[in-house]
């Protein structure tokens, strides 16, 4: 059984990672959903696999066994939060598509390439070109 769960986790992770490496938003959203599944199952499996021992207390059973409830509680909230996250991401993807008419996730080069870093001297040179009349006040020099 463990090997089935582990291989399922591996398969879902691989699918998720492959999909988040695509360049269109929808695939990335699907990939994130798959990754959420994989991670949730992984977290759940940290409580180890137990069958037929749900953590519902049974006062009448003799020597009842229960599985670890803590990972379940964590995963439960994680499932709900990943829904919230998916919803926000989908909304952003949708907004970007409607606004820009394109559902690529890569940043266009115009947005990306920064203007060249300018030194202080460059700025001063530019300033002095802009205001050629400006003279340096005497006596304000500071040694170096």
């Amino acid at each position: 059984m463990e090997i089935l769960v582990a291989s399922a986790i591996g398969a879902m992770t691989a699918a998720g990672v492959y999909l988040i490496l695509r360049i269109r938003t929808f695939a990335v959203v699907l990939g994130m959903t798959m990754l959420s599944y994989a991670i949730n199952v992984f977290l759940f499996s940290t409580g180890r696999l137990v069958i037929g021992a749900a953590p519902i207390l049974d006062n009448y059973a003799e020597n009842p066994t229960y599985t670890d409830p803590l990972p379940q509680a964590l995963v439960l909230t994680a499932i709900v939060i990943s829904f919230g996250m998916t919803a926000v991401v989908v909304m952003m993807a949708l907004g970007a598509f409607i606004e820009g008419g394109d559902d690529r996730i890569d940043m266009p080069d115009d947005d990306r390439i920064m203007p060249d870093l300018r030194t202080v001297e460059d700025e001063e040179a530019r300033d002095s070109v802009a205001q050629p009349a400006k003279s340096q006040p005497v006596g304000n020099e500071v040694g170096s």
């Binding site: 463990e2 090997i3 769960v5 582990a6 291989s7 986790i9 591996g10 398969a11 879902m12 992770t13 691989a14 699918a15 998720g16 990672v17 492959y18 490496l21 695509r22 994989a38 199952v41 992984f42 499996s45 940290t46 409580g47 180890r48 696999l49 670890d68 803590l70």
Partner: peptide
């Protein structure tokens, strides 16, 4: 991408398997 994805999947699956086959390191 497929190579990276497969590598990640194998790694994560192996990790899960290794963990599930061992008992808790400390008392939960």
């Amino acid at each position: 991408d497929a190579f990276i994805a497969a590598l990640t999947g194998i790694g994560f699956g192996t990790l899960a398997y290794a963990m599930m086959r061992r008992d808790f390191g400390a008392d939960p």
